Computed example of a mutant assay.
Amino acid sequence: MAKITNVVYYRVKPRWLMVKITDENGEFGWGEATLEGHDLAVEGCLEEMIPRVIGRDANEIENIWQMFWRHGFYRGGPVFMSALSGIDIALWDLKGKNLKVPIYELLGGKVRNEVQVYCWIGGDRPSDVEDAAYVPAPCALPASV
């Protein structure tokens, strides 16, 4: 039973908002709270949520989720759910690290060995997009991320 001691969030270019939760043993988990184009709104929601999780048992993931879901009169919405998702994913990541198992083991086991993913390509010129579309290498994040 490790207590949550710190929750911080980071904007990661070009469009992500990441949440880091640290427990009293110095272990940490990461979650994504991205809502493209609405980072400031999600950050405001996280600012309201963070004081409510500090000092709580990091293993009580469902209890924390239910506390946020049932706490207020108004529920849901993309801003609220993005912030809650970032906290939820970070707590699962932290629990997996503490138990020394991948998250998929906590959620019922591996489902497949491969998965198709969406890979975005782009550039400043149409020729950049054309060049990227014909590269047979796997999709990777740009070096600037």
Rank of each mutant, 00 (worst) to 15 (best):
A2I: 03
A2D: 08
K3N: 06
V7P: 00
V8A: 10
Y10E: 07
K13H: 15
K13E: 13
W16T: 04
L17V: 01
M18Q: 07
M18T: 07
M18I: 13
I21W: 03
T22Y: 03
T22L: 01
E24T: 12
E27M: 13
F28M: 10
G29I: 01
A33R: 03
A33Q: 03
E43S: 08
C45K: 13
I50N: 05
I50M: 05
V53S: 03
I54V: 11
R56W: 14
D57V: 04
D57I: 06
D57A: 11
N59M: 08
E60L: 13
E62N: 06
I64Q: 01
I64C: 00
M67T: 01
R70C: 07
R70Y: 15
H71G: 00
F73K: 14
R75Y: 02
G76R: 11
F80T: 02
S82W: 07
D88E: 07
L94M: 08
G96T: 02
G96E: 04
P102A: 14
E105I: 06
L106S: 03
G108M: 06
G109N: 04
K110I: 03
K110S: 06
N113S: 15
E114M: 08
Q116E: 11
Q116A: 14
Y118S: 12
Y118F: 07
Y118W: 13
C119W: 13
W120N: 10
W120E: 06
I121K: 01
G123T: 00
D124P: 02
R125T: 06
D128E: 01
V129K: 02
V129D: 00
E130M: 12
D131F: 12
A133E: 09
Y134V: 06
P136H: 12
A137T: 08
C139R: 14
A140T: 12
A140P: 02
L141Y: 13
P142M: 15
P142S: 15
